[in-house]
Amino acid sequence: MKRWKQSELVPVQVELNGVQRRGLCEPRVLLSDFLRDTLGATGTHVGCETGECGACTIRVDGVAQRSCLTLAVQADGRCIETVEGLAQADGSLCELQHALRERFALQCGFCIPGILMTCAEMLKRRPLPEDEQIPGLLAGHLCRCTGYTDLLAAVRHTVAEVRRREAAHPASAPSVGVHDA
């Protein structure tokens, strides 16, 4: 059992995109605020704070979830992946990010960090989702600019590419369309 008083500053340590990071916060501080304000990882955006919009979605131990509905103290010791960790080591875009850019799938880009993290989780699933399953997997994300059409096309394209490669080289390590932190 660990017990923290209400105004106590709690040490929270996470592995953020492969790097150990630490910070202090009150028990009530949301993980979204901790990532942005304490750790400076402002790539994760906050759009509603009730879990509806999906902009703040991150991966905790690989699972895509809302950082606005999680307390920072709950993430202590966890492995967190955010949009900042998606690009390849040399800074160039990963396959998924590239597909979004090529298809003009984003406009203001505010919702995109969350969508990318849900897609990153999706691309690691085996079997990969079928085309008709993809909208259901993205239905927890609101985008107000694009009408989703180009976004869905880009995600379907990336899934299809990964599937095609794996079919061609079944023995090789899974290629996932996103960079592994």
């Binding site: 059992m1 660990k2 017990r3 923290w4 008083k5 209400q6 105004s7 709690v10 009150e26 028990p27 009530r28 949301l30 605020d33 704070e49 009730t50 307390l71 103290v73 709950q74």
Partner: peptide, 10 residues
């Protein structure tokens, strides 16, 4: 929209 303070027990 931030929670009111509370004591937290894991």
């Amino acid at each position: 929209m931030k929670p009111a303070p509370f004591e937290y027990v894991r």
